[in-house]
Design a protein around this nucleic acid. Sequence first.
DNA 1: GAATGTTACCCACAATTACCCACTATCTTA
DNA 2: TAAGATAGTGGGTAATTGTGGGTAACATTC
Lengths: 154, 154
Amino acid sequence: MTLSPNKFIGEYAYSIDAKSRVNIPARFRQALSVENEETFFTTRGFDACIYVIPAIVWQNMEMELSNLSSVSETNRSFIRNQTRHASPSTYDKQGRIKIPASLLEYAGIEKDVTIIGMINKIEIWNADRLAENDQNNLNLDSNSYDDLAGKIIL
Amino acid sequence: MTLSPNKFIGEYAYSIDAKSRVNIPARFRQALSVENEETFFTTRGFDACIYVIPAIVWQNMEMELSNLSSVSETNRSFIRNQTRHASPSTYDKQGRIKIPASLLEYAGIEKDVTIIGMINKIEIWNADRLAENDQNNLNLDSNSYDDLAGKIIL
DNA sequence: GAATGTTACCCACAATTACCCACTATCTTA
DNA sequence: TAAGATAGTGGGTAATTGTGGGTAACATTC
């Protein structure tokens, strides 16, 4: 998988308006416009947050899914789970995207959100819930990351 | 298999009217019109749902079926099951297709349906039955997807 | 041929969404 | 520091979407 310059990093505080729109940080938009891409896919995150995924990243996964045979029940179930909560959306002239109500509910978002750049995708959190999540992670054994040590060089 | 931009994703709630018509989500229609295609094939799904399959995908499957030797009884049975319940249909000006009564019965559909995009085809479920199916899948061994983990990067 | 039922096509309407414009605060640059 | 550009937020309007129903063409049955 060769991903171009979608490198999302950093943390930003925004709010969702009455029409379920959130701003995408200007820095992220610039990173995207490089490849003239204005379409995102929103879906459930593995944590209690919303994923916002650039089209090129999402389409790569779609391609992998489309190669799975539907004769297998496991495959069908997996595809269903991957696609059900996903939807495409483009941002408007002000750089906002509309978030489906079901995702807002899933992530417990009403107004204040924290947006986090996750390298090749974006996470949108309920600001309070993210703080709780941080708190829980403090309890992780300090060796939890050891397996990654071999993969991450820093 | 190289499939063009028929990428159906997401979950939608609709209802079937008195004339056995269901709406096809507007997003799906747009995906299809890219290749100027307005014909679907409806047939029984592997699960207790209805498949709505774009012509190009259907034709691809026909080709694969034609490569199965009829010497095998399993093959004969499989081919028979795939084709006998299938029929073509196009959508009307409002984007609805008519579902044959026999398929509605098979899927236990009376009114409320849930439509799920499955990348290259569409599933129509009795909304309640889908919920039951989800419940059953929770009982799947949590390692069921492990084989897929190596293929799907997200 | 009349009666019945089915199919395809058309119009209507409410609700939602997409698109556009406006305002303010912040950041840049000279 | 002044002035312009950019960023984030709010709201109005036109177009789209989902749904209901009417009607004419067609086939089927008695």
